[in-house]
């Protein structure tokens, strides 16, 4: 089947089977490998992208279901001049990652949260990120990064 969609603002097309997962189309056909596959079972959130503005786990969306959709991946998050987005910068500033495997999904989910709730409380952040699993950080610095990206004061993180 032929599919067409917009990914990070660019029109793309490809030939897929009915069973092709959106994440595989993104990684293998489009070669956008910033979107990660962690569990492949809708649990971990490493493959989170935006589909028509809403967060989805791309391992649990058929590529054909994205026909005509507006897709944004982690590669589309940087500012126009190539600098990191506020959310990405906050993850760096707050040490919101260690191994980094979950980070693309975390950034996509957290960015979606701020679109819905510009100044989320700590509890709202933790509730929203329930579907994104990190096995390194213990989440505290991720939560701080989201608070920081939303312009809220956060307790300073230990010195470098």
């Amino acid at each position: 089947m032929k599919i067409e969609m917009h990914v990070n603002g660019r029109p793309v097309s490809g030939e897929v089977e009915g069973r092709t997962l959106l994440v595989d189309f993104i990684r293998h056909d489009l070669r956008l490998t910033g979107t990660h596959v962690g569990c492949d079972t809708t649990q971990c959130g490493a493959c989170t992208i935006h589909m028509d503005g809403a967060p989805v786990k791309s391992c649990s969306v058929l590529a054909v279901e994205a026909q005509g959709a507006q897709i944004t991946t982690i590669e589309g998050m940087a500012n126009a001049d190539g600098s990191m987005s506020a959310m990405q910068q906050a993850f760096q500033d707050c040490h919101g990652l260690q191994c980094g495997y979950c980070t693309p999904g975390m950034v996509m989910a957290a960015t979606a949260l701020l679109k819905e709730t510009p100044k989320p409380s700590e509890a709202e952040i933790r509730h929203y990120l329930e579907g994104n699993i990190c096995r390194c950080t213990g989440y505290h610095n991720i939560v701080k990064a989201v608070q920081s990206a939303s312009g809220q004061d956060v307790t300073p993180v230990a010195a470098e």
Partner: peptide
């Protein structure tokens, strides 16, 4: 579920 599940 979580926000991604609720989107779909």
């Amino acid at each position: 579920g979580d926000p991604s599940v609720r989107s779909r």
